[in-house]
Write a protein that binds this DNA or RNA. Structure first.
Length: 750
DNA sequence: ATAGGGTTAG
């Protein structure tokens, strides 16, 4: 049975025997003999070769094979008719043994046939070596085609050493662009990047005999655009060099390839190289379209490199590259993200061609309008975003994104009514809401304490066929955690899993954080196991909330388990981790380990913060060593250069009052005033308790006035202290005035 | 071009 492709090959050989050969050969080939002559010669020889090789009739074959009219192409056709490389190789050997010396060039076409046949067979490395050795031994000059085929065969057999040897020993006349392209492509495919680049270098030399062509360009670009191999891929820095080399020979990447290359470089944060690449192509005369410039503009936008963005736009103008709607879209988006909304609106005018001829005459599309509407919403210019919506309706139809941006804008502005109105409006206009619309509204309602409405809306939308995704569940779960409705949060987590929604890390992290904060460590551990089952890992923040949770539950072994796990996972503890640990150890009175942690965090290059010192101060206070706490407090301002804040003062004032050192506590209050650190309700509660013990009633009135001045609202603790104290001393009138926000110390009792 | 998350001291 002959396979279909094989049949095609045979057919091709019968139809185009001569051209097929001549096309690839450097051996001269006279096309003058008529087809009938060709046919009869070939047919006769083929006939004679049908018998077993040891019965070949030399007397009959010799005049036919070695006559003056026998062309190289005839010999090739004859060889191909033998059907297998083994038979062809025998024929080669036969001709070599029988050819008159002046006819030795006739071996080239026969070898051509041998390798052609071989390349169609299953590659046998052993046989290939045998053939190759024979060629070298007999010094048969290779045709370009046989060189190409040989390269391909050696490549298929992964014989890189032989490949390079072959190329280096190749007769210069045979080294054509086509042959070299095959070699480069083969070397790339085999991962021998350095050798391929070396050959390419040779190809691109100024006086090269085999200059690169578009095929070379495609091979090199294909390699440059391939995703990076773990073994060896072309370094980003080399990309520019290679493209430059090719461009010297007029070989340029086409628009798509150039754009892809720029995208690739920008994705890897190599914007500078992308910039150089684009400018090199422009400078050496390659065609550059707006698409490629757009790719670079996007990269520059991500780098916030406004200067280069403007330079590129100027360059486009200079090179007469017409910006398209995408170019303007990138520009407008960048300006919006930089909150330069008025500049963005100016670009809209510019593209429309305000004032006639100076304009670009590029029609803004729905994306342009959406970007601007979103930009206006994000700077709280909601009215203008609504008027832009009306304006855009003259030019294009608003879509789902348009309304999503507006709905989000009004949700963020706490105008849920307007958000719902826009939702109704989009439905009326036949713009179909999607899951983003759903999530925007649900999150808006959750953030404004309307979880019930959010759930109701979610159910209604589900009935209409819009399913929630992990974003929906994150909003609801976080909202339930925030109101400490942990059971509902867990219920929605289960609902999410059973609804077939695939959770992402964010929904896991939100729930783990909520559960840890609520002290539900068993639930948190369960969610952690689910997270791991989904193939995710914990990050520092997630470990921190868990460690904090276990600390609060005094589950020391779980804390160390977490730390161990962090180390194994290569997640470095950060300042939060250390602060949490130091606070926990301090509270437990384990000052030794706490100091060790302090040392360790400094060794890791982490600088203790006001929170760290607060934890240490708190620990000393808790364990009755207020003197040591005060010592650290004083060091904070002097040597440590971490000024204490309200919380630190509160801890100390509270502790000093508890050890009856109200004088010192009061002096800290004065210190706060001097340093401009605002006391809060907790500060006043602490000091009021202290002076209550000391019965310093007039000091209380003074402090109550200061509390009014500082706009510190009394809380239930304040109310408890003052009610108990002032009612006992008959000063309830002053308390009433105080609650109404009046000063009390100067007013006299009626 | 649009939507969601989290930690430490009192």
């Amino acid at each position: 049975m002959v396979s279909a492709p094989r049949q095609l090959q045979l057919l091709r050989r019968h139809l185009l025997p001569c051209c097929h050969y001549c096309h690839f050969s450097t051996v001269p080939c006279d096309l003058s003999p008529s087809q009938t002559d060709d046919k009869s010669l070939v047919t006769q020889v083929v006939q004679l070769l049908q018998v077993p090789e040891n019965e070949w009739n030399t007397d009959q074959l010799r005049p036919l094979l070695f006559s003056a009219t026998t062309m190289p192409c005839h010999l090739l056709t004859i060889t191909l008719h033998l059907g297998s490389s083994s038979k062809a190789l025998n024929f080669l050997e036969y001709v070599r043994a029988n050819a008159p010396s002046e006819q030795s060039h006739c071996l080239s076409p026969i070898f051509h046939g041998v390798i052609e046949l071989f390349s169609e067979e299953t590659i046998s490395e052993y046989k290939l070596l045998e053939i190759y050795e024979r060629v070298k031994q007999w010094g048969i000059p290779l045709t370009s085609r046989s060189a190409t085929l040989l390269i391909q065969c050696l490549g298929a057999a992964k014989m890189v050493g032989e490949l390079l040897l072959l190329f280096n020993n190749l007769d210069p006349s045979v080294k054509s662009t086509r042959v070299v392209n095959t070699l480069i492509s083969t070397l790339f495919r085999l991962g021998h990047i350095d050798s391929a680049v070396q050959v390419l270098d040779e190809m691109c030399k100024p006086n090269t005999m085999f200059p690169p062509n578009n095929v070379t360009g495609d091979i090199v670009l294909g390699e440059l655009l391939k995703r990076d191999s773990p073994v060896r891929s072309i370094a980003e820095k080399e990309i520019g060099h290679l493209v430059r080399k090719l461009s010297r020979h007029g070989v340029f990447p086409d628009t798509i390839n150039l754009t892809n290359l720029i995208n690739k470089l920008c994705r890897k944060q190599k914007t500078k190289l992308a910039w150089d690449l684009l400018h090199d192509v422009m400078q050496s005369g390659g065609a550059v379209e707006a698409t490629s410039c757009n790719a670079l503009l996007t990269g520059l936008g991500k780098d916030r490199d406004v200067k280069r963005m403007n330079d590129l736009l100027a360059k486009m103008k200079e090179m007469e590259i017409k910006p398209n709607v995408i170019t303007f879209g990138i520009l407008i988006n960048h300006l919006c993200k930089s909150r330069r909304i008025d500049d963005a609106l100016k670009v809209l005018e510019e593209m429309r061609g305000k004032g006639g001829s100076s304009g670009m005459n590029v029609e803004p599309d729905v994306v342009i309008f959406n970007t601007l509407i979103d930009g206006l919403c994000k700077v709280w210019r909601h009215d203008e975003s609504l008027s832009l919506l009306e304006q855009m309706k003259n030019e294009c139809r608003p879509n789902t994104v348009t309304y999503n941006c507006l709905i989000d804008g009004f949700c963020k502005a706490s105008n849920l009514d307007k958000a719902h109105e826009l939702f109704d409006q989009m439905n009326k206009e036949g713009v179909i809401p999607n899951v983003v619309t759903l999530n925007t509204l649900i999150n808006g309602m959750c953030k404004h304490g309307r979880i019930g409405s959010a759930v109701e809306f979610f159910n209604e939308m589900q009935r209409k066929g819009i399913k929630g995704n992990s974003v929906t569940y994150t909003s609801l779960i976080s909202a339930f955690c925030n109101v400490n409705n942990i059971d509902k949060a867990m219920q929605y987590f289960d609902l999410m899993l059973s609804s077939g929604c695939s959770p992402d890390v964010i929904v896991f992290y939100s729930l783990i954080s909520g559960l840890s904060l609520a002290g539900r460590m068993d639930d948190a551990s369960f969610v952690v196991s689910k997270l791991k089952e989904s193939g995710f890992g914990l990050d520092v923040c997630c470990y921190n909330v868990l460690i904090s949770g276990f600390c609060k539950k005094k589950k020391l072994e779980r804390v160390y388990e977490m730390l161990q796990e962090m180390e194994e996972a290569g997640v470095k503890p950060d300042i939060f981790t250390y602060n949490t640990l130091i606070s926990f150890l301090g509270k437990n009175g384990d000052f030794k380990t706490a100091c060790e942690m302090l040392r360790k965090m400094r060794k890791e290059g982490l600088v203790p913060t006001v929170i760290t010192y607060g934890a240490v101060i708190h620990a000393y206070c808790l364990h009755g060593n207020v003197d040591e706490a005060m010592k650290i407090f004083r060091e904070m301002s002097s040597t440590l250069k971490v000024p204490p804040n309200t919380v630190i003062y509160n801890i100390l004032i509270d502790s000093l009052c508890k050890i009856k050192d109200v004088e010192c506590a009061l002096s800290l209050m004065d210190d706060m005033k001097v340093k401009g650190i605002k006391p809060n309700t907790a500060t006043y509660n602490a000091i009021l308790k202290g002076i209550q013990d000391k019965k310093m009633l007039y000091k209380a009135f003074e402090l109550m006035d200061r509390m009014v001045e500082d706009a510190c609202k009394p809380d239930y603790v304040t109310v408890d202290i003052l009610t108990e104290w002032l009612s006992a001393v008959g000063e309830m009138k002053k308390l009433e005035k105080f609650f109404q926000g009046y000063t009390v110390s100067s007013c006299t009792e009626e």
